[in-house]
Design a protein around this nucleic acid. Structure first.
Length: 493
RNA sequence: GGCCCCAUCGUCUAACGGUUAGGACACCGGGUUUUCAAUCCGUCAAUCAGAGUUCGAUUCUCUGUGGGGUCACCA
C-alpha cells in the first residue's frame, strides 16, 4: 500500500448509471470530495456502466445535475475530460483487456469453460451439502484458451485468511471463504465491477477509496487482485451504512430512498443537504451542527467517521434547512416563498408584490422547507393575506354562545382603530389603541374575534401584525364584514 | 446457514480508563402571544447482557444477544 505522504490525494465518486442517486450515494461522494478538497487533491467523477442490462438512459446527466446542485465539483470527469480520460468504463475496454492479458500471461487468470447451467448445478449441490459454493473447488485443470466468449476468472493463488487496514475501521479480517476465483471479464466482453474499478483506480492514480460497508466482504478479492497485479493498493475508508427510517435496513431505492433532486423540489437548500449529510456518520468533534462547507472542510477527518449505521432522519434535515432559510437574504427569502406559493393563490385579488414583500419575514419565520409553504396553502393559512376571509357561521355562533364575540366588542375595536392616523398605522400603535379596553373586558374577547375577522382562521400570526399588514382600510373592511355576519346571525336566531 | 461488520437517550451523536454520561432533533410541559406553525424556558430520556482485566470500565478482553451487510457473468 502506498504510504507516501507527499503524494497528491486523489479520490473518486464512481456511480453506475442505473437511475438517480440517493442520499447514500451522495454521502459517499461528499466524503470523497471533502477528503480531496481538504488536501488540495483531485476529485474524479467516473461512470461505472459495465452492466448494460441495468443501465437507465439519461442517468449520467441526472447524476451530474445532482452533484452540481450540491456544489460537489470534480476535477476530472466524463463531461470535462482530464488526463485520465475517458471516464466512462464502457469506453475503457482496452485497458481492461490489457490487464486481463497480463494476468493470463502470468497464469493468474483463466477462461471459465462451464455453462451457466453447470455452475448452477455446482451451486445447488453445495447448498444441498450446506456448505458455501466456491468456484475454485471446481477450477478446471486444463482451462481452454480464452476466446473472449467465456468469462475470464482470476486464479486465487493462496487461499488464506485476509487481513487489512481500513482508515476508518482499523484492522479488518475475513475468512478464506471470502476468497474465490471471481470473474474479471464477463462473457459479453465487459469487465465486472470487481475488476474494472481496480484497474481504473490504478490507472487514474486514486489514492483513497471511500465506500459503503457492503464492500467489506468483497475486499479480500480486491486484495488478491492487487497482489496478482503486483501493485500497491489505495487506502480504503469504509463509511457506515445509512439506514432507512425505522433503522431495520440499509437505505435503498427499493425501500423508497428518494432521488436527491426530489429534495431540491421540496425546497431543501443544497447547503443544508450537504451539512446534514456531513453530519450523518461524522462529527467535527464538538457541538457544532450548522456548519458551512468551509467549516466542514476545516474539521473533516476520516478518523472521526462513525462505525455504526445512521438512520436518515428527514425531520432533522428539515430543521437544518430552516436554519439555512433564516440566514438567507431578504431577496432570496422572497424568491423562495414565491417559488412555493401555488398559482391559485398568486391569482387572488390582493396578491401584490407589496403584500408578498411584507409577509415574507412572517412566513419565513414559520417554515423550514417549501413543503411547509405548500401545506400552509392547502390549509388555507395563506390566502387570507390576499383576499377577504370567508367567515364561518358556526365558528362565530359558537363563540357567540360563549359570550366572547359580541357586536359590542367588535364595534368598539372598529371605533378605536378608526381614530388612528394612517401614518401611525403600525402594530404597536394598533395594540396601544386596543389594549386597555381589551384588558378590561378580557383580552380573548377582543383579540380572538379580531384574529378571526382578519384571517378567517383559528390560528394566524399576531392580530396586530395582521392589522398592520392589511392597512387601516383593509382592516376596518374585514372588521365590518365580521360585524355584518354577526348581526346577520343575531337577526336570524 | 457460512463469512464479516456494528452496538450510548425515540433519532443523530459527545465523553486521554476517573464527568451528576454532555449537545442537537423530535416529544412532552410551561412563559409570552388568550392562535401556533413563531419565540423563550424547562422536563423526560441512553451506555444491549454476563463474565474478566483494573483501585476504577461507556471506554480494554471474552462470551452471549440483537441489528446490519455479504455470499451474482449487480455495482
Amino acid at each position: 500500500m502506498s504510504n507516501d505522504s507527499n503524494k497528491k490525494i486523489v479520490t473518486r465518486f464512481a456511480p453506475s448509471p442505473t437511475g438517480f442517486v440517493h442520499v447514500g450515494g451522495i454521502r459517499t461522494a461528499l466524503f470523497a470530495y471533502l477528503w480531496a478538497r481538504k488536501h488540495n487533491g483531485t476529485f474524479i467523477l467516473r461512470i461505472e456502466d459495465t452492466d448494460k442490462e441495468r443501465e437507465v438512459e439519461g442517468s449520467i446527466e441526472h447524476i451530474i445535475e445532482s452533484l452540481k446542485w450540491l456544489g460537489l465539483d470534480w476535477d476530472e470527469g466524463p463531461d470535462i475530460g482530464g488526463i485520465h480520460a475517458p471516464y466512462i468504463q464502457s469506453q475503457r475496454l482496452d485497458s481492461y483487456k490489457k490487464y486481463a492479458e497480463i494476468l493470463i500471461d502470468k497464469n493468474l487468470a483463466y477462461a471459465d469453460p462451464y455453462t451457466e447451467k453447470e455452475i448452477e448445478e455446482f451451486r445447488a449441490q453445495a447448498d444441498l451439502e450446506k456448505r458455501p459454493f466456491l468456484y475454485r473447488e471446481h477450477r478446471p485443470d486444463n482451462p481452454p484458451k480464452w476466446d473472449k466468449t467465456m468469462p475470464l476468472r482470476l486464479k486465487i493463488q493462496e487461499v488464506k485468511t485476509s487481513e487489512w487496514e481500513d482508515l476508518v475501521r482499523g484492522k479488518l479480517t475475513a475468512g478464506p471463504e471470502a476468497l474465490d476465483d471471481f470473474i474479471l471479464i464477463k462473457s459479453d466482453g465487459y469487465p465486472t465491477y470487481n475488476f474494472a474499478h481496480i484497474i481504473d483506480d490504478l490507472e487514474m492514480g486514486v489514492t483513497h477509496i471511500m465506500r459503503a460497508d457492503e464492500f467489506i466482504s468483497s475486499t479480500p478479492k480486491f486484495l488478491a487482485l492487487y497482489e496478482a497485479l503486483g501493485v500497491d493498493r489505495p487506502e480504503m475508508a469504509t463509511l457506515p451504512p445509512i439506514m432507512a427510517p425505522g433503522g431495520k435496513k440499509k437505505l435503498g431505492k427499493r425501500d423508497g430512498a428518494k432521488d436527491v433532486l426530489d429534495y431540491r423540489n421540496e425546497g431543501i437548500l443544497p447547503e443544508a443537504m450537504i451539512n446534514f449529510l456531513a453530519l450523518l456518520g461524522w462529527n467535527p468533534g464538538d457541538d457544532r451542527e450548522v456548519m458551512t462547507i468551509n467549516e466542514i472542510l476545516e474539521s473533516f477527518d476520516v478518523k472521526k467517521i462513525q462505525h455504526s449505521g445512521a438512520q436518515f432522519n428527514e425531520e432533522k434535515l428539515a430543521w437544518i434547512n430552516g436554519e439555512y432559510i433564516k440566514k438567507m437574504s431578504y431577496e432570496e427569502q422572497e424568491a423562495y416563498l414565491l417559488k412555493f406559493i401555488p398559482n391559485d393563490i398568486k391569482s387572488l385579488p390582493h396578491f401584490t408584490n407589496d403584500m408578498l414583500h411584507r409577509i415574507t419575514p412572517i412566513i419565513i419565520e414559520r417554515i423550514s422547507t417549501g413543503l411547509d409553504i405548500e401545506m400552509m396553502a392547502v390549509n388555507g393559512d395563506l390566502d387570507y393575506y390576499f383576499k377577504f376571509p370567508k367567515l364561518s357561521l358556526d365558528v362565530l355562533k359558537k363563540e357567540e354562545k360563549e359570550n366572547i364575540t359580541t357586536e359590542e366588542n367588535i364595534k368598539k375595536v372598529i371605533e378605536s382603530l378608526s381614530q388612528i392616523n394612517e401614518g401611525d398605522w403600525i402594530r404597536n400603535t394598533i395594540k396601544d389603541a386596543l389594549w386597555e379596553y381589551a384588558t378590561s373586558v378580557g383580552r380573548g374577547s377582543v383579540l380572538w374575534p379580531m384574529r378571526y375577522a382578519l384571517s378567517g382562521c383559528m390560528k394566524s400570526p399576531d392580530p396586530f401584525i395582521l392589522a398592520e399588514l392589511f392597512g387601516k382600510e383593509g382592516t376596518l373592511t374585514r372588521l365590518n364584514l365580521a360585524l355584518e355576519t354577526l348581526s346577520h346571525i343575531n337577526n336570524n336566531v
